[in-house]
Amino acid sequence: MFDLTAFQRDLLFTISGFEEPHGLKLKRSLQEDYEEEISNGRLYPNLGELVDRGLIRKGKLDDRANTYQITREGLRVLRRRRQWEERSVPDGLVGT
């Protein structure tokens, strides 16, 4: 949980919100909230690392695009992270 980068966690959260998004859909979704440009050189190596770690699965959309799906282990990591955040943030700060 703590050995993921913030960007990798954001990827996991984003992937979990879609059924089987492709890379460009993930990039567009994240780009809405990121101030800096998300390059393919940043996106795809991080997706590859999440696949290698068993947190997401990679499928094939067509000859040019892959799809990504969060695994049970990926969901477990996200749940643990959310629980840690809820314990760590004082009640008065949530939602302010």
Rank of each mutant, 00 (worst) to 15 (best):
M1Y: 06
F2Y: 10
F2D: 14
D3L: 11
D3W: 05
L4P: 02
L4G: 03
F7E: 03
R9V: 14
D10V: 01
L11M: 10
F13Y: 10
T14A: 13
S16L: 02
G17D: 15
F18E: 00
F18C: 00
E19W: 04
P21N: 09
H22Y: 12
H22P: 00
G23N: 01
G23M: 02
L24S: 09
L26Y: 00
L26E: 00
R28Q: 14
R28W: 09
S29H: 04
S29I: 00
Q31A: 05
D33A: 12
Y34L: 11
Y34M: 05
E36Y: 15
E36H: 14
E37A: 10
E37V: 12
I38S: 05
I38F: 05
S39C: 04
S39Q: 11
N40Q: 12
N40F: 12
G41I: 06
L43F: 10
Y44R: 06
Y44T: 04
Y44P: 01
P45S: 14
P45I: 11
N46W: 02
D52Y: 04
I56W: 03
R57C: 07
G59W: 01
K60R: 15
L61E: 10
D63N: 09
R64Q: 07
A65H: 14
Y68K: 03
Q69G: 10
Q69D: 08
I70M: 04
I70F: 04
T71G: 03
T71K: 02
R72N: 14
E73K: 12
G74K: 01
L75R: 13
L75A: 06
R76Y: 08
R76I: 09
R79K: 13
R80N: 12
R82M: 12
Q83N: 08
E86G: 02
E86T: 08
P90W: 01
P90R: 02
D91S: 14
G92R: 13
V94W: 02
G95P: 02
